[in-house]
Write a protein that binds this DNA or RNA. Structure first.
Lengths: 137, 137
DNA sequence: TTTACAAATCGGAATCATTACGTTATTATA
DNA sequence: TATAATAACGTAATGATTCCGATTTGTAAA
């Protein structure tokens, strides 16, 4: 997913491509890991943009709903990143810098047989630690 | 892990076995799924106990550190349950009632080879949905 | 290219979970 | 049972997120 794809997706679904929405997309497209709402706000403030919590959170949720961003929750705080899912996969997430590495293993096939009468609605598989880069600090 | 084991563990580590600590253990021992701090507080208030946030959260964290409780984060809220880990496993968690079912599959063995230069510090594998009981409501 | 209006943003207040703190009470043990 | 350390109390503070009424903006049609 890149910025233009996301903007097309917005318009296609009847949403307006506003300045703030583009700013938010720009930010996430140039990051390559999970970032928080606070990270985004700090970035926008450094660019001397006005920032309303309402706008930030409303759009983050919208982007999540539309599959433009993917999210996870770390230390009680929601984290967001551009959706990189051409196909189903999971992530290693660096505890230091938030950068991710895709993991193609998915254990769900092995699991489903043991959950015969259960209605499965979702799953989460994440690995946490330090990426090669952050181990040298 | 049951209440007596937990109390022994407390004393063994130099912690006092206070009334509040026992109340908290009693609550979680009679639940069989993930519960929040709020759930616990409500329960204690219904028993006409005085409840201080400080006491609740301090002890929940203590129990987590000691391995008496295990925790997960759902919808921005920490959830706790008695630790059931005799051996390593994961959980199906019911979105409705919080009850869990143990899953013995762990994908980490398959994953480690693709993370050769990464320092792995932890992982999370959870499955969400409705348990057989909650599908009929 | 203006107009109109639905949709989005703004700014700030409110909420919810969690943490912090100074004081008081309780526990283990000598 | 006296003592000292630990824990609980009550409440205030914090931090992330949500909500709200007023204002502005993007878009499609005139």
């Amino acid at each position: 997913m890149n910025v233009n794809e996301a903007i097309d997706l917005l318009k296609h679904n009847g949403y307006k491509a506003t300045g703030k929405r583009k700013d938010i997309l720009d930010y996430f497209s140039e990051q390559d890991g999970y970032r928080t709402a606070k990270d985004l706000i700090t970035h926008l403030e450094n660019d001397n943009e006005t920032v309303s919590f309402d706008t930030i959170y409303r759009n983050l949720h919208l982007y999540k709903e539309m599959g433009i961003l993917e999210t996870t929750e770390l230390n009680g705080e929601k984290h967001f990143r551009m959706n990189c899912a051409k196909h189903h996969h999971h992530h290693f997430i660096c505890n230091e810098c938030g950068r991710t590495k895709a993991i193609d293993v998915c254990p769900m096939a092995d699991v489903k047989k043991s959950l015969a009468n259960y209605a499965i609605e979702g799953h989460k598989f994440e690995i946490y630690g330090l990426c090669p880069n952050c181990q040298n600090n």
